[in-house]
Design a binder for these strands. Structure first.
Length: 597
RNA sequence: GGGCGCGUAGCCUAGCCUGGAUAGGGCACCGGGUUCCUAACCCGGCGGUCGAGGGUUCAAAUCCCUCCGCGCCCGCCA
């Protein structure tokens, strides 16, 4: 039985009135039978959506034990004494279970009413006073995105959308690391005239194309620079000097402009996936405004502060539950400069001051950093905690993580290009009537939808092996499958001249089993959104969207809509509700609603 | 070595938080479906020691312990 979404339902949940009747009825029946059955206990045991025998099921094994009665007879007695309700079509004891089936007409009425009345807000929770900040992506501006980094962006952006739908006002942030060695390497190489570049770097950067994106262009020498520095002490010292200049607040004039230029190129790619950010936060600003120094003052004053022989400061984090080897966290170097984690403390103090809830989307390799950050926040007297959404890496089939320097990376831009090419072919194969611009638009949406869906459909904590044929699939459990169902529903409504309401309907006419099943999927949506927001299981929404599309396709094949008789307007209302719910789910996933494909 | 995560049919995956009745999808494979609202679809079939062992429980994919395999982290890097 699937109880994963089982929650106290809210006012926009079609199951809400039914659950209330079932709980109240069970409490009343229990009293008649002579058994104490508190409403809370019933709610905890009641399973919604899953039993093979009905919509709701109450297993009585445990309750029977407490009452000292055989479960089967208790189930039978409860069913027999359950007060009749027009909202339920059957209450039956099967073995140790009491099974409830909702009256289909009533559920259909309730569900379509809610979907059609709330429209784009169906599935959303009531507006909450709490605010949240979701920080995601935050990739160093050193070159183009590879698909491994994009998993962060897709999970983060989707989670932000889901949180918003759950009622929390969300601000998304991209934290730009312009303080570290990686950013310094970019400035180091581009501050030299091309003629002065060391040979291996110049060779590696060759092959530029006219008009290539700035992240591609400026990022070209990066892997070679990285390799070069490993073997050239004097170059390493130049970069180190650059890093010191960043800390002192006097970096080369071009430093931030270069980072911004590369970032702009990266963001252009994300924009194609409908991913954007509310705010950009530069790491160096926390040094400039003195907040890093204030953090250091507090840390140095901590009873756990340790002064090293060369003047560095560390914090003894014994007692914070960190792994044994990580009990000494250096927060200030011997030369007085700060470290990444120290600056991150300053950043998080700012976020915690501004937002009620602070969420970071991080790769698993940052897990220990997250725990260290957590400990240091306590150390500086911050009582509140950020929460972390941790996801596993995307690896390549040959094994290992995607690596820019190792050459195993799959570039987002390359994947986009392949996907669009393939999507164009699919569109042209079935639509000869479309204008060129429409073909392009649909192909772009199908391609980006396939990519987003492919990444988000898997639970964040699962590792993913990247395979082209999987990422480019437009069938089955895919983005285009869901988009197609939406387009299909749109097409029906268009031909029925019913793209806009009102949608009068008679729920009693929607009595086909396919219709009942379809309504039940639609009715699940509010619980799915609430569950995904609570657990950060963004993949639940992807799975749900597939379920709706799947059920709609079955309905579509089994039941005529436009060619039906007296059911026609009611079925049109059902299709409109499907289109609305599917569209809302597509919005949460960041996939385009396509009116035609 | 320690910490964290993962292990479900040939492949991918849901369910694990909150134990409950025949473990739900997809790909691949086999067989069907288009004078009918879009076949990126639908119907049927095939395929499962839920990594292994033990424990708790009336009941374990789900909770606990041990072990095995895989990944990541364990810098005065970010």
């Amino acid at each position: 039985m699937d109880r994963s979404e089982a929650l106290p339902s809210g006012p926009t949940d079609p199951w809400d009135p039914i659950v209330k009747v079932v709980v109240a009825g069970l409490v009343a029946a229990a009293t008649e039978v002579g058994v104490a059955l508190p409403a809370e206990t019933v709610r905890a045991q009641l399973a919604l959506d899953g039993g093979p025998q009905g919509d709701l099921a109450l297993p009585l094994h445990r309750l029977a034990q407490v009452a000292g009665r055989p479960a089967n007879s208790l189930a039978a007695e409860l069913a027999a004494h359950f007060p009749p309700s027009p909202i339920l079509s059957s209450v039956v004891a099967t073995g140790a279970y009491v099974n409830f089936v909702a009256d289909s007409a009533r559920l259909t009425q309730e569900t379509l009413d809610l979907v059609l009345a709330h429209g784009g807000r169906y599935g959303s929770g009531p507006a909450l006073p709490e605010t949240a900040c979701v920080e995601h992506t935050s990739a160093n501006p050193t070159g183009p995105f590879h698909i491994g980094r994009v998993r962060n962006a897709i999970i983060g952006d989707t989670f932000a959308r889901i949180l918003r739908a759950s009622g929390v006002p969300v601000t998304t942030q991209y934290y730009i690391d312009d303080m570290g060695r990686q950013a310094a390497m970019i400035t180091w190489i581009w501050s030299k005239p091309r003629a002065e570049w060391p040979d291996p770097i110049r060779r590696a950067a060759e092959g530029e194309e006219v008009g290539e994106k700035p992240d591609r262009h400026r990022g070209r020498p990066y892997p070679a620079v990285s390799a070069y520095l490993k073997e050239h002490e004097e170059a390493r010292e130049e970069v180190a000097e650059l890093v010191r200049s960043l800390e002192s607040g006097e970096p080369p004039a071009r430093h931030r402009a270069l980072a911004q230029e590369i970032l702009d190129g990266m963001l252009a790619s994300l924009a194609r996936l409908s991913i954007s950010f509310d705010e950009f936060v530069w790491e160096s600003d926390f040094v400039k405004d003195g907040s890093v120094e204030r953090v250091l003052e507090r840390l140095r004053g901590s009873p756990h502060a340790v002064r090293e022989s060369n003047g560095a400061w560390a914090i003894d984090t014994t007692g914070y539950g960190l792994p044994k080897e990580s009990t000494r966290v250096v927060v200030q170097r011997g030369n007085g400069t700060s470290l990444y984690v120290t600056r991150d403390v300053a950043y998080h103090l700012q976020k915690l001051a501004r937002f009620g809830r602070v969420v970071d989307v991080l790769g698993q390799d940052h897990q220990l950093h997250a725990r260290t950050l957590d400990a240091l926040l306590t150390e500086v007297g911050e009582a509140r905690r950020p929460s972390f959404v941790i996801y596993q890496d995307i690896t390549v089939p040959e094994g290992g993580r995607m690596s820019t320097r190792g050459g195993s990376a799959v570039w987002l831009d390359h994947l986009l290009e392949e996907a669009v090419t393939r999507a164009r072919g699919e569109v042209l194969a079935r639509r000869e009537d479309l204008a060129e611009a429409d073909v392009d638009r649909i192909a772009e949406s199908v391609a980006t939808g396939a990519i987003r869906y492919h990444i988000v459909r898997v639970a964040p904590e699962k590792p993913v092996v990247f395979r082209w044929e999987d990422a480019l699939s437009f069938e089955g459990r895919s983005g285009p499958f869901v988009q197609y169902a939406y387009a299909r529903a749109s097409s029906v409504l268009r031909k029925g001249e019913a793209l806009r309401g009102p949608y009068p309907f008679d729920a009693r006419l929607l009595r086909d089993p396919e219709e009942a099943a379809l309504v039940r999927v639609l009715a699940r949506f509010p619980r799915v959104v609430a569950y995904a927001a609570r657990t950060a299981h963004v993949h639940a929404v992807a799975g749900y969207a597939h379920d709706v599309a799947d059920r709609f396709n079955r309905f579509y094949h089994a039941v005529p809509v436009l060619k039906s008789g007296e059911e026609r307007t009611s079925r049109i209302a059902l299709v409109a509700a499907v289109r609305q719910t599917l569209g809302n789910a597509l919005d949460l996933l960041g996939l385009a609603r396509l009116e035609a494909m």
